[in-house]
Design a protein around this nucleic acid. Sequence first.
DNA 1: GCATGTGAAGGAATTCACAGCA
DNA 2: TGCTGTGAATTCCTTCACATGC
Lengths: 207, 207
Amino acid sequence: MRYRKIPDETVRRLPTYLRGVLVLSEKGLKRVSSKRLADLLGINPWQIRKDFSYFGDFGTPGVGYDTLKLQKRISKILRLNSNHKAVLVGAGNLGSAVMAYGGFSRYGLDIVAAFDKDPKKIGKKKNGVTVEDVSKIGGIKKRKVDLGIIAVPVEDAQVVADDLVKAGVKGILNFSPRHITVPKKVKVISIDIAMDLARLPYYMSAG
Amino acid sequence: MRYRKIPDETVRRLPTYLRGVLVLSEKGLKRVSSKRLADLLGINPWQIRKDFSYFGDFGTPGVGYDTLKLQKRISKILRLNSNHKAVLVGAGNLGSAVMAYGGFSRYGLDIVAAFDKDPKKIGKKKNGVTVEDVSKIGGIKKRKVDLGIIAVPVEDAQVVADDLVKAGVKGILNFSPRHITVPKKVKVISIDIAMDLARLPYYMSAG
DNA sequence: GCATGTGAAGGAATTCACAGCA
DNA sequence: TGCTGTGAATTCCTTCACATGC
């Protein structure tokens, strides 16, 4: 079953696999079994094996997977092997948290610029990046940025998205609680914290 | 097809529907069609109708859905009709952003306490809530808190989860980039920002 | 013996197309 | 005519069970 189309749900899990593999290889492990990875990530071992089977076999029966090979292969599929530059729009609480997060660089993602419309924030430094005036966002064109992160209030989100698209961004991570419309060639992934919290009570046993 | 088991994917979308309905009813709309809601949320109309059909019909053919009825019904299914109290652990950048977010109360979710282990943060007020010493987290038992939000560094996440479970929390929103283990009766929803950002390059057209 | 890889089975979710009602 | 509600068809994903290779 080699080299078939990778199912969407598998793609969804790939970053998590990559995270797990990175953790294990930082611990010095050269090999990992699907069982071990499964325990670490809270996913079924057969699900992991099936997912890996979509992009060719590199596991060794009786032994497991080579962590380095896995890491390289998953990175390549996710196109994280080459570096990507991202810009952040919105340097408020959430934007600052994203800047401070720091967990992106290990995936080849760098936040190279930040923008805001508030004059009080413009010029201030956040994690080594100076906050610029959002009206100058077009300037990122020459900087080969391909990702945008929207962390502005909901009422500004669509305008910012339009600006990002105009500035040549190909993918957007949207933290605002609304659907944003972009051309087909641009991919948007939205995270709405309240939506996830609002789902919790449903699953909690009554009483 | 009334009153069947609601599929998991439908439950996943329910909070988004609720958000949409709230937006429209704040605009003064009494009725909404699946098409209108679809455009607002970026979901197919037939998907919406199918989802709604799982929990009984209240739409009017030729007219649409009653916004108030929809809102009440979805809230009830998600158990958001009664209020829920949440505690936040970790008052760093991300935790502060969550506190400042403010978008929870419209869903009946209130953050009533915050904890941290950093003495410099303890005693400070964040959005009207005083940060307490995390060692006193057991004290929430008497306050009828049922939700916990983990916004601590990854190495502390599991310990904090254990503490939250001990303190009687039934659901956890986990922002740390790791799988956390809890008893079956406790539900965990995890958000790993880096995982979502790491998925973007895959979908971006080459070039 | 131990762990991968994968067809096949089984289960779910999405999409369709249209009947039925206001 | 307009929009809901829903069986049926389709597509997609998960789970199983075991053959295969180390």
